[in-house]
Amino acid sequence: MTTKTIQEIEAEIVDEFSLFDSWDDKYEYIIDLGKRLPPLDEVFKKEENKVKGCQSTVWLVADYQDGKIIYKAESDAIIVKGLISMLIRVLSGHTPDEILNADMDFINKIGMTSHLAQTRSNGLRAMVKQMKHYALAFKSLRFNA
């Protein structure tokens, strides 16, 4: 399990992206991440796990272990899978509070929001929102327990 903070991981990704000269390289990297994202078990690919607001289909599930949230997700589109892979790398393995407080500014810093068409960048925001919803849900569960 990760010991780095969310901010540290975000900074790492921004550093990695600064090495790329062109968007061709950035996309190749994201696509590669997408290809390497472990597939989600078929049982999780159901309507209730779909993230609304994405053009492609995205399934997202979360598990709560020892006070930390573990996310798993998949999509039928590879670039989206690559983006998911980065979101999971940043947020998975952290506490609900840490996740709720994350500003996720790395998405802007690597130029993703300005480069993706509005409709697709809305999909990215929808994924982050859904991940934070899970954090909120697990946090209230913990309080109620």
Binding site: W23, Y27, A77, I78, I79, V80, A117
Partner: peptide, 20 residues
């Protein structure tokens, strides 16, 4: 291959097509 991935990569080359 998902149409959306093609759409994004073509857009990166200045080529506008519709996917969906």
């Amino acid at each position: 291959v998902h149409p959306q991935d093609i759409g994004i990569l073509l857009d990166n080359k200045g080529i506008a097509v519709r996917t969906g």
